[in-house]
Computed example of a mutant assay.
Amino acid sequence: MEFPKILFSLFALIFFLFPSPMYAAPGNSNIFREYIGAEFKNVKFSDVPIHSGIEFHFILSFAIDYTTSSPAPTNGQFNIFWDTNNLTPAAVSAIKDQHSNVKVALSLGGDSVGGSSAYFNPSSVDSWVSNAVSSLTAIIKQYNLDGIDIDYEHFQADSNTFAECIGRLITTLKNNRVISFASIAPYADKEVQSHYKALWKSYGHIIDYVNFQFYAYDKGTTVSQFMGYFATQRSNYQKGRILASFSTDGNGGISPENGFFRACSKLLSKGELAGIFVWSADDSKSNGFKYEKQSQALLAIPH
């Protein structure tokens, strides 16, 4: 009987023409994200302009698994290292009450602690994950947070250990409904990429955003160079929502003055602008958040 073969062929054709959303390449999105609190410049959530037509994520920087005095690794027992005088649990609740489109996350790791590199340094996968789940759950609930970002940049563990620790952490926090989203923040460095690509290979399906640090490329990056870098990272983190990024500290990458928004317009036209993020609100306060306003206005345009 030929009918089953015809039916099978029809299903195969439908799958080919209309692939599952899980495997579809991400398109344009109106997500804007900004790191805040790492540089203790007295910036408040309420200082930052928030456009009502986008999804806005503040990312508190940083929670680190180090002791707060004479910093030393704690094997997953996280402490708060952001500006707690201005960025309090009450301030989180207030900004979320005032703006229904705002969510707040915390970032893990960062570049340094107490003037030295902040290392990812677990004693074992099981013990680190257990400690991290417990300590982060307490912080996330205290601050009424929505997600986490992974921004480790220095490692005293191999890439597979990093992948398992972070992958299990995100999985557990999501399964426990402690967080609703997770992101990673790699940049173009061989060791950094090896760790994050190992994580992506095993756990990419539970990571919602890739906050790729395009500002870690050379200062003076051109539009054409940026487009090439962006294509490379789309290949490295396939099916990921890769966000375009710039820094307002003027240290590197493509700047708003040198073509960042032209590059974003090109990405928009290709259906590849999954969002924009900025490092950081602390640095932007001095110029009145000029480029945050421009970024959000671009993302709010229907497309």
Rank of each mutant, 00 (worst) to 15 (best):
L199Q: 10
K201R: 14
Y209D: 03
G204D: 04
A198H: 05
F212L: 02
Q193E: 15
A198M: 06
Y203F: 14
H205Q: 12
D218W: 10
S194F: 10
K197G: 00
D218N: 15
A216E: 12
V210Y: 05
Y217F: 15
H195Y: 09
Q193D: 13
Y187T: 03
L199T: 09
Y196Q: 08
Y187F: 15
N211I: 01
S202Q: 15
A185H: 06
A216K: 15
F214W: 03
S202P: 00
Q213N: 10
Y217R: 13
Y209N: 04
Y203Q: 06
F214H: 00
F212A: 02
I207E: 08
H205C: 04
W200S: 05
G204M: 12
F212W: 07
K219M: 07
Y215S: 01
A216Q: 15
F212H: 09
A198P: 08
A188K: 01
Q213E: 14
K190S: 14
V192D: 06
N211V: 01
P186D: 04
I206A: 11
A198R: 13
S202D: 13
I207S: 11
W200Y: 11
F214Y: 11
G204L: 13
P186W: 04
A198W: 01
D208T: 09
H205F: 11
Y203P: 08
F214S: 00
I184W: 02
I207N: 11
A185V: 04
Y196C: 02
Y217A: 12
Y187I: 09
K190E: 14
Q193H: 05
K201G: 00
Y187K: 08
Y203T: 04
K201Y: 11
Y187M: 08
D208E: 06
Y203L: 02
A188T: 03
A216Y: 13
F212G: 02
Y209F: 11
F212E: 03
E191W: 05
I184L: 07
P186M: 02
Q193M: 12
A216I: 02
V192G: 06
I184R: 00
L199C: 10
A188C: 05
